[in-house]
Write a protein that binds this DNA or RNA. Structure first.
Lengths: 257, 257
DNA sequence: TGTGTTTCTCAGGGGATTCACAGGTTGCGG
DNA sequence: CCGCAACCTGTGAATCCCCTGAGAAACACA
């Protein structure tokens, strides 16, 4: 697979001091992501979240800016809103592809602009999420795209492990100590977020911002509720892995410790 | 038979970490495919999908471009629209053959095209699909052509196996636990797509983009419908292999687990 | 043209999921 | 030991997602 990008992204992973695993390029430099959306609030939100992943971010507000930035920034992945002021999403895509033939693209589409020709978008291994999205979802899909685009020598796993608890991001399977556990979509996302930050306290606000869509306007205690659901399913009768830090938040860690 | 192609493609396969098998040339370099069509949207779509297969793609928009590109790119296979602006499909074919005597060609034809002409052409081991096509179909045929052109020593399998379920891409035969199962064309394509991505959740959008023709504009719930048909045929009264991940998509996996 | 097959739309039903609400429980400072 | 704040969780309603039967339309083949 040919890449015009300066360096190939392979699915190397490294574990940071905090215990978070991050994607890196083969030369150890951070992954580069280009974010394209005309709403400033969205690009800001995404930039912040993706930078938190340890990635290097650039953003553009329209199609021409996107193509220009892509040319010199040479990102390893692109987040592209399909609704841009200056040109059609597909046109932007075409021009981007001319610059970077193999770069994976994560499309942002409006939910209510139902099926407005989303056809073929996922065909090339690309992916999309609908607005309003949750950051956890965007990050997860982006990681998937980058991991897969790493081609031949990728051997990076799609499985998160904390103690005897495992979560497979490809098959969406979760098990503890060999027992399969069925989780709903939201439970899955929450657990993924916890497991990607083991032994670290996550506040309810953080969780809400990350796992729920950015336009969620409900009660903050959904987090408590879903933590309760998760405990029932993964800590049921076992040594608990999910812990409450009163006044601070929640954390997950191996049961043994 | 002598070949002008730089390297002969043999039916070597390798299995990626995700479990997808990919075709490679004997020297380990990626397979090269030339795509010729005058509609940009088609070449883009095909390039996207074929690149995702791990192949190296070039495209051309007319006959002269095709011959030129073929001369220097030396593809292992060609996808050729029979309806080009500058010259007749047969002429293009002739010139291509002069450059690359043994390269297999996949023809794209309009539905109502004269079948007999094509039939004559495919006698030589080439193949064709009619527009509008599904990507699964194009990829499958192309894989077949490339595999077969690898001549004598191909021992690569055209049979997908997941648990006790087998699907033969050449004979289109499907069986589970020894029992033969009759599938319609669409059911077959869907099952093939699932089986080529075992243990991985595939969204309805992904399935639609891949299994249905690019111009399909219908209801997204055809996917649900066909999943339902497949279950009736392959999971009937047995341990189910097709699973729903509510809110995410579907996946297939061996029944045992 | 006629017949059987296949594809697809439509709509009803049902179960799963999400979430608000409210009352109960726990931990902690005084 | 009290009282408050933080947290937990049962209940139930609204919604969403998925499944599937019925039948119309398109197609294949003789």
């Amino acid at each position: 697979m040919l890449s015009a990008a300066p360096t190939k992204v392979s699915a190397m992973t490294t574990t940071s001091p905090q215990g978070r695993t991050e994607l890196l390029r083969p030369d150890g430099s951070p992954v580069r992501v280009l974010v394209v959306d005309d709403e400033l609030s969205i690009t800001e939100l995404l930039s912040m979240a993706l930078r938190y992943e340890g990635w290097q971010i650039r953003s553009a507000g329209d199609g021409t800016g996107a193509v220009q930035t892509a040319r010199e920034f040479r990102p390893d992945a692109v987040v592209l809103d399909m609704m841009l002021p200056d040109m059609d999403g597909l046109t932007v895509l075409g021009r981007l592809r001319r610059e970077l033939p193999d770069v994976p693209v994560l499309f942002l589409t409006a939910k209510d602009a139902v099926e407005d020709r989303i056809a073929g978008l996922t065909a090339g291994g690309d992916d999309y999420v609908t607005k309003p999205f949750s950051l956890e979802e965007v990050v997860a899909r982006l990681r998937g795209l980058i991991r897969r685009s790493g081609a031949a020598d990728r051997r990076s796993e799609s499985v998160l492990v904390v103690g005897d608890l495992t979560l497979d991001e490809d098959s969406h399977e979760v098990s503890r100590g060999g027992d399969n556990i069925h989780l709903t979509a939201t439970e899955f996302e929450l657990l993924r977020f916890l497991m990607r930050n083991p032994r670290r306290v996550l506040s309810k606000a953080q969780i809400l911002d990350r796992v729920w869509s950015y336009d969620f306007g409900g009660q903050a205690n959904v987090v408590e509720l879903y933590i309760s659901y998760l405990r029932r399913k993964i800590d049921a009768g076992r040594e608990p892995m999910i812990h409450t830090r009163r006044g601070a938040g929640y954390l997950i860690k191996p049961a043994v410790s």
